[in-house]
Design a protein around this nucleic acid. Structure first.
Lengths: 339, 339
DNA sequence: TTGTATGCGTTATCAG
DNA sequence: CTGATAACGCATACAA
């Protein structure tokens, strides 16, 4: 443990009291120009920087928030985390990151964040806790902002209009004449997956079409291959003529199977994918896709959190729903009669 | 600021002194069974948990380390971060994450980590600072472990044998008869890219072949498309017959161009990629690739760090170099005479 | 074996 | 306007 310069050293060097040093540095209370100068000179001379921990202990403000997510290895949440980290840092806060891996650890991490006196939690838990009494965030007094999960009306949250995004994608394909449209989405047990399925069904219903479970593939894990299920779908008596794959891996697997069967995109088969702006720019040929604006989502999450911390927010929970952009590429075509 | 239970409350409830409470909880000094029982009962009754910050201020141990990287949005470092976070947490440490984005911010983050009295820094800086006097880690007294960067002999570091990995890949292709082998690698300015180029040249030299810069594409950014450069290469008078693309995006772009020119893999053209175990499992058709064991790398980084923190490490810096596995898939074939 | 008292580095509340 | 001093919650040297 190395000796560091403290307020006392500064006070001694400046020939003033510790209280005065603190007042100058925090612009609290009064300080004559002369005294201020002495203090500031001593500060630069000694290279003094106030200690974060001591300040935290005294003021109760840790200037740190926790970010809880299932795993940082999943690139989409990781991109969100990255944005939040930047925005929070420019607002003067640090990020303590916790990956829960297992649902049971959601709870542990919240307890841990609380014990470290963080000022808030931004979370995408690995489970949605339908029973509010055993929700990990139920007892905490910390401000909580939920991202991409639906934990009910009690929490500030920012989520995407997955149903609406899917609806857009479906309407686009339906307008091109497609009627047998497959859907590949991961995370059946969470809001994003559930809502997408809802949007899918709604669009189908609005078009007066029947829902066929054989055209749906919803793995729980984001690490899942779509090759076998797509293979199966294409062997159906009445195979799909279009496919919506909301996952990079899901899309590439499907693309491979489709091409392997001699189908050409978009002539014989239409596809819609998903991705961030960066991912979509790299795809070639350009695929028609829902574009995820993780930057905007992060912005909202940070704003909700800061409003809570500063206390400028109304007491009731706020729900912000963001829309998807359907970016038209070249992977969809008019349905052609089967040969 | 809500009132929390403190040692004093526990002491009062147990009818003992604060010192005794502390001793019982930390197993330091003596404590009779009876006293211990009283304390423990009071602790559970009140739900007391020692305050992290106060303990930190008192003991000087923050039980937190900083992880510095260019951006969490890049999936490969993010996977590494994810592993480190888990391992560190089971060792009782938290991770404060900082993405530098710009090289100038490497320095800011180190200062910040120092100010918060973290116990160490695991870093993949965005620049390698050839001049040791202006290295951001030069002045810090914190233990530092460098990941996937070469900052010289003064730092503990864990890196991959990129030259060796590339050498393996080259030998494999050379043995198949290929002589014109293209190389696509990002990060020309950092150790991973630089070393891969070195391995490439070495393998070429060992085989008595000439180095041709026209077969090299080394963008600085990990977000870069390989389509145009590969297009150019295939139009050369003497085009490559094989290609090593060490990046998922680089590979998929190249694959698209190659197929677009009517070449079939592996019959007409051989390719070698890169990825984590999870990524490789999802690729289809299975591609021959260098497998990155980020788990192992994280393990080593954490061990190096813990050895430093616990002080069990020898004073001199340790350099751990890990090998790549060349996983044979189905994307490479014997060179066939040109038609 | 246990209790008391001091200090970690701040900020904040008082007098002066 | 400024200086002394008391906390914040804990660990520990020392006294009992």
């Amino acid at each position: 443990m190395i000796k560091r310069v403290s307020v006392r050293d500064v006070a001694a060097a400046a020939g003033v009291s510790v209280g005065s040093v603190s007042r100058v540095l925090n612009d609290s209370g009064y300080a004559s120009v002369e005294l201020r100068k002495h203090v500031l000179d001593a500060v630069t001379a000694l290279g003094y920087e106030p200690d974060f921990t001591a300040r935290h202990l005294r003021t109760g403000r840790s200037k740190t928030i926790g970010y809880l997510l299932p795993t940082i290895a999943n690139p989409v949440p990781a991109a969100h985390l990255s944005e939040v980290e930047q925005l929070m840092r420019s607002a003067g806060y640090s990020l303590l990151v916790g990956s829960s891996q297992r649902p049971t650890r959601d709870r542990e991490l919240v307890a841990f964040f609380e014990n470290r006196r963080l000022e808030g939690i931004i979370a995408s838990p690995s489970f949605e806790y339908p029973d509010p009494t055993d929700c990990p965030f139920g007892k905490t007094t910390l401000p909580v902002v939920i991202v991409e999960r639906d934990l009910g009306e009690d929490y500030d949250c920012v989520l995407m209009n997955h149903a609406g995004g899917m609806h857009q994608a479906m309407e686009y394909l339906l307008a091109l004449g497609h009627q047998r449209i497959a859907m590949l989405v991961s995370g059946a047990n969470l809001a994003p997956g559930r809502e997408k399925l809802r949007g899918y069904k709604a669009a189908l219903g609005a078009a007066g079409l029947q829902f066929d479970p054989a055209l749906i593939y919803m793995p729980e894990s984001w690490l899942a291959s779509s090759r076998e299920p797509v293979q199966r779908m294409l062997q159906l008596p009445s195979p799909p003529t279009a496919l919506i794959a909301l996952g990079t891996q899901l899309l590439s697997g499907a693309l491979h199977v489709v091409r392997g069967r001699g189908l050409e995109v978009p002539r014989d088969f239409s596809m819609i994918g998903i991705g961030t702006t960066e991912q979509l720019e790299l795809m070639y040929p350009p695929v028609t896709a829902l574009r995820y604006d993780y930057h905007r989502s992060a912005e909202v999450a940070v704003q909700l959190m800061l409003d809570r911390i500063e206390g400028t927010a109304a007491p009731q929970a706020r729900r912000v729903v963001l829309e998807w952009d359907l970016v038209i590429g070249g992977s969809c075509g008019q349905l052609r009669p089967r040969s």
